[in-house]
Nucleic acid binder design. Structure first.
Length: 984
RNA sequence: GCCCCCAUAGCCCAAUCGGCAGAGGCAGCCGACUUAAAAUCGGCACAGUCAGGGUUCGAGUCCCUGUGGGGGCACCA
């Protein structure tokens, strides 16, 4: 029907008709490239440090602003227009801050270890370093073209050996530390990481017991290291880990989805006991929660971190185990249970009187000691699982639970299963004998792996009690109309008293306090805190990561390498892949690629005992390692003597005292990135930062003071009748006969869907396409004007022209399109223009300060449009406009600024200040309402008094008409803008 | 299942302490320029704020209930 490809000749004609000096994509490109060259040549965005190699000529400005983007991974897939959104936003903020006088630190580096490059290497045999370097180069070029004001001297990659060296150094700092819960902390508080030597000294002196019953002096070196390993903040341990055969590596808990699969690749994950590196992040659980209160972060992210750490306060309570019933002998082996007590953790000690049974996790060690030989008299048939002896029932249930993966345990939903162990525990508050069950709804890794079950107050316990016909006692009075089941809400405590203590009549909080005090007094319980957070699994069976800077001695003892042997570089290997297995091969074991580099693994060193052959660690650090401290390296990227000079860290990130006397945590002033890093990266980086703080290397308590999550740019995609994606840019939108939009591609109707932008959906738009069609400034203005930074929204290439028109109009307000001559006059602007300028300056300052570039741009457009209507644009009007446009569209602003006769870059020119006198309007429109409805408007002076305004309003004819003779009950006056008259 | 966020014009989005629903952009329509079209320029129109209830002199804004969309957590004792 219509011709789609008739535009080639049209374009030629169009080109010929365009004035020679119009702000087109070609002119924009010319301007942009020349300014980028000049910025680079002059080092315009180099931010001086207070000292060291990057120091400037004089004193550093007192006001500083450290703006930070989340570390990009240099993907080989190429950027689409969604990727730079955050980078443009930080650039705009940074440029604005420079113009308000701050020393702005802004740079970009690359998180370059990781799987994509390694997987590419596995497929092609090309070394991941080559792939990585190429990708970085491509990405750097694409981003530079956007005109980002980065200090290029501060750019690095985590794979640089100069960076790896300090990553390994920090690892050793953590390895060589322990958490002393009694150590005073700089800046207040108790509990800090301390050098492991202080702990060794306490063991040596006998001040502290080794924990294994033997004196320090009697231990071998390997035994000593075993003891220290239980205290080190980085340690090797046999731990149940998430083994992913499909990836050939273990994963951190955080990298496993709720349904037990790998977050990346979606392979099944199995629990296995393996010897791995761990980070004792749990030692920092409290501080990681508490310090959130001092951070300027989105509440949502704080909540996610709080949930992840999962601090719950409650009590540990000890229950005595009563053994079998009626003289039944204990255990098939005849041995008495090694553990004659069960310790539980509960957040609801107030419900102790409602405990009617106990549940142990299937893996609970008490069961290893044996169970009664026979079922006690009166054992309910449903409790036995059909077995004739408790030992059989327990063994069968344990085997069944062990065979299940996490997926399967959860796939069975809420169906509670378990068996009786034949054991009874004694409730310390009332002496009741409670049958002890094992059930897989109790997890071995949380709390003590054992619970007291209160079916009256816990839904899970209630479900179990119902299934196994166990008694249910309510200890909190449920509200009237309660439909049975477990009542978990607040209320008055009932059924809870013994000879010494009564909780009856107390509310839940009071009851908790009362019973905890009683338990502590009797020595059967203590108030305690537990965390959902586990220690962080820190080794991966991968090639492309930082090697561990340690070696192992013959006796298996781990030895930290001395500083001068850092960095430990990766060896060349013939094959980059770990051994992978069938997805579901749970019995397989990790075999990292480094294990095959024999010459590297077995290394002769003199570590003080003469030359000896040691064995290197064949694991590598996880991808998170490099991103745990990069914010510190930007400050002092070339330092070879320290990871960062303390004086430099103090200047850029140190705590500041606010006007109200509160001291901040310090950290980067603004950190922008996606919310997907809310838990993992942000928690790990905070942990490392705090360790470094404790050890005195840095002055800031937190790495990121203000966090901002930008939204995502998404896009429409279209599928044809077969469900195949068609090129989105070729889809035509029309309004159908029913008024709803209809989308067609090559004449056939297609369906629209909304989501990510990407090659596979055929809806990808790249920055390069935007540069060539519109120029970088237009692209930047469009991205910033689409909406608030924290909201996700659809990309619409057709709408980009609006941003281009704004810049074209700005250009035309200063430059003649035909001659290229400056058209600006030095004569004063008219009164109205001066008022619009002043108003715009005030508004733009407000919007920019609040990180709302979208509304700031709207104000700039208003001023710009106003200037198109005046006969001759005045310098005093266009100059502020150009300066204010500079943060979002820096190239065109620089060009116009230069054409206006300025030699210096406007980068450090002060942002315009409004003339306060012009901000006061001569008259204000006062709205006169009758019963909330607008009936009239009055032009009044802004200074008008309430009484005068009331009289004026009441006298207004429209008001009299609306009142229609009714009396007046009340008049609300909000001078000078509003009067509301309430009739009787 | 529990918790959090969002919903304003055909579309993207503004609206300060509760005070005239509209700043800006896209698309649309009319006009100017043009042989014509595109581009450009000038102008115009368009919703009563997801639904229902409440508080108030006055609600997009505060409260409650529901609908739709997005996100987090999910046997965590």
């Amino acid at each position: 029907m219509s011709e789609h490809h008739a535009s080639v000749t049209d374009t030629a004609v169009t080109d010929a008709a365009i004035p020679a000096h119009r702000y087109t994509a070609d002119l924009a490109a010319h301007i942009e490239l020349s300014w980028q060259a000049r910025w680079a040549a002059e080092g315009t965005f180099n931010a001086p440090n207070p000292t060291g190699g990057l120091a400037g000529d004089g004193e550093v400005p007192a006001e500083k602003f450290y703006v930070l983007d989340m570390f990009p991974y240099p993907s080989g897939k190429g950027l689409h227009v969604g990727h730079p959104l955050g980078y443009i936003a930080t650039d705009v903020v940074g440029r604005f801050k420079r113009m308000t006088g701050a020393n702005v630190l802004h740079a970009l580096s690359y998180d370059a270890f990781g799987l994509p490059a390694e997987q590419y290497a596995v497929q092609t045999g090309q070394h991941p370093r080559i792939t990585t370097d190429e990708n970085i180069e491509t990405m750097r070029r694409q981003l530079l073209r956007m005109g980002l004001a980065h200090d290029e001297r501060r750019s690095f990659a985590t794979t640089d050996s100069g960076y790896v060296r300090w990553t390994q150094w920090i690892f050793l700092q953590i390895f060589n530390s322990w958490y002393d819960h009694d150590a005073p902390r700089p800046g207040g508080g108790v509990g800090a990481a301390r050098p492991i030597g202080e702990l060794v000294a306490r063991f040596e002196s006998g001040e502290r017991a080794t924990g294994n019953g033997r004196a320090w002096a009697d231990l071998t070196a390997a035994e000593r290291e075993d003891v220290l390993g239980t205290h080190r903040l980085a340690y090797v341990a046999d731990v149940p880990v998430n083994w992913c055969p499909g990836l050939g590596t273990v994963l951190a808990n955080e990298e496993v989805t709720a349904d037990g699969r790998s977050e990346r690749g979606n392979f099944p994950v199995f629990k296995r006991n393996l010897r791995q590196w761990m980070m004792r992040i749990t030692a920092y659980g409290d501080r990681l929660v508490d310090d959130l209160d001092r951070l300027d972060w989105p509440e949502k992210v704080k909540t996610m971190q709080r949930n992840w750490i999962g601090r719950s306060e409650g009590a540990r309570v000890t229950f005595a185990v009563a053994g079998g019933d009626g003289g039944a002998s204990v255990a098939a082996t005849g041995a008495a249970p090694a553990v004659a007590e069960i310790e539980v953790f509960t957040t609801r000690p107030d419900t102790l009187f409602g405990a009617t049974f106990m549940v142990l996790a299937p893996e609970h060690p008490l069961l290893d000691a044996g169970v009664p030989a026979e079922w006690p008299e009166g054992t309910h048939s449903a409790w036995t699982g059909g077995h004739t002896r408790p030992a059989d029932a327990v063994a069968a249930y344990r085997a069944q639970a062990a065979a299940k993966t996490d997926i399967e345990r959860q796939a069975e939903g809420r169906e509670k299963s378990g068996v009786f162990t034949g054991l009874f525990a004694v409730n310390p508050v009332n002496g009741n004998r409670l049958p002890v069950f094992i059930a897989d709804y109790v997890l071995v890794g949380y709390g003590t792996g054992a619970i007291m079950a209160v079916p009256g107050g816990d839904q899970r316990d209630h479900a179990f009690a119902t299934a196994y016909q166990l008694p249910i006692v309510h200890t909190v009075e449920p509200p009237s109309g309660f439909d049975g089941g477990a009542y978990t809400g607040d209320g008055v405590t009932i059924n809870s008293a013994n000879d010494e203590v009564s909780l009856n009549g107390l509310d839940v909080a009071e009851a908790k306090r009362a019973i905890t005090a009683w338990l502590e007094d009797k020595g059967v319980g203590t108030a305690t805190v537990t965390y959902r957070l586990r220690d962080w699994l820190f080794s991966r069976q991968r090639y492309w990561g930082e090697p561990f800077p340690v070696v192992y001695d013959d006796d298996g003892r781990v030895i930290a390498l001395p500083d001068e042997l850092l960095p430990v570089e990766l060896p060349e290997v013939p094959d980059f892949s770990p051994r992978t297995y069938a997805d579901d091969d749970a019995d397989s074991s990790p075999e990292p690629p480094l294990a095959r580099a024999d010459e590297w693994v077995n290394v002769e060193l003199d570590l003080g005992d003469g030359p000896k052959v040691y064995r290197r660690d064949t694991n590598t650090m996880p991808n998170w390692a490099g991103s745990c401290w990069y914010e510190l390296r930007y400050l002092d990227p070339a330092n070879t003597a320290a990871m960062v000079d303390p004086e430099i860290e103090k200047y850029w990130m140190g705590p500041r005292t606010g006007p109200d006397g509160t001291v901040t945590t310090g950290g980067a002033d603004l950190y922008v990135g996606g919310v997907e890093h809310a838990v993992l990266h942000l928690l790990y980086a905070r942990f490392w930062h705090k360790v470094l703080f404790d050890l005195g290397h840095i002055s800031s308590v937190e790495p990121f003071h203000k966090l901002f999550n930008q939204g995502y740019i998404q896009a429409y995609a279209y599928t044809d009748a077969r469900g195949v994606h068609v090129p989105a840019e070729e889809v035509v939108e029309e309004v159908g006969s029913d008024g709803d939009p209809v989308w067609t591609w090559n004449g056939q109707v297609v369906q629209r869907e909304y989501g990510k932008m990407g090659k596979s959906l055929k809806n990808m738009v790249t920055p390069d396409e935007m540069y060539s069609a519109y120029g970088a400034d237009t692209f930047r203005v469009y991205e910033m004007s689409m909406g608030p930074l924290d909201v996700s929204r659809p990309w619409d290439t057709r709408a980009v022209v609006g941003a281009q028109r704004f810049l074209q109009r700005l250009w035309r307000n200063a430059v003649d399109e035909d001659t290229g001559e400056l058209t600006v006059t030095d004569a004063p602007a008219d009164e109205e223009t001066r008022r619009v300028v002043a108003r715009t300056i005030a508004d733009v300052r407000t919007e920019m300060s609040a990180m709302r570039p979208n509304t700031a741009i709207a104000k700039l457009i208003v001023l710009n449009n106003h200037l198109t209507s005046v006969p001759r644009v005045a310098r005093e009007a266009i100059e502020p406009l150009v300066l204010m446009t500079a943060p979002v569209a820096p190239h065109i602003a620089e060009e116009l600024w230069a054409r206006l006769g300025h030699d210096e870059s406007l980068t450090y020119h002060p942002f315009p200040e409004p003339d306060e006198a012009l901000l006061v309007a001569e008259t204000v429109t006062c709205v006169v309402q009758v019963q909330g409805k607008v009936r009239d408007r009055l032009e009044v002076p802004p200074s008008i008094g309430e009484d005068e305004l009331r009289e004026l309003a009441l006298a207004a004819p429209a008001v009299q008409r609306a009142l229609d003779g009714r009396g007046i009950r009340k008049v609300i006056v909000r001078a000078p803008k509003l009067v509301n008259i309430v009739p009787a």
